[in-house]
């Protein structure tokens, strides 16, 4: 499984959504599932997927699917 697939799976697992919704523009509060509870689920799923611990600032900034890719570069995860 490549990193993009792992990354998408984190979103699918956290929000219980299909592939078709997942684009770079998918954003916090753009779907009902990505609320504050969903955000915590997503952060946990991303940390588990890549075996990393996100800095608090990065958890705050993780506002879109696309932004998350940029943030993960800091953790040597290229998507």
């Amino acid at each position: 499984m490549d990193n993009l697939e792992k990354y998408k799976n984190a979103f699918k697992e956290a929000f219980e959504i299909g592939d078709e919704i997942i684009t770079d523009e998918l954003a916090y509060e753009s779907i009902p599932e990505w609320d504050s509870v969903g955000h915590m689920r997503l952060m946990a799923a991303v940390e588990d997927a890549f075996d990393i611990m996100l800095e608090t600032e990065d958890i705050l900034d993780f506002g879109t699917f696309g932004k998350g890719k940029e943030i993960l570069l800091k953790y040597d995860v290229t998507i």
């Binding site: 916090y28 504050s36 955000h39 915590m40 608090t56 958890i59 705050l60």
Partner: peptide
């Protein structure tokens, strides 16, 4: 309650 703000406060 602003759930995200409280989460951020707690984690930070």
């Amino acid at each position: 309650m602003d759930g995200m703000a409280i989460m951020n406060f707690s984690l930070k």
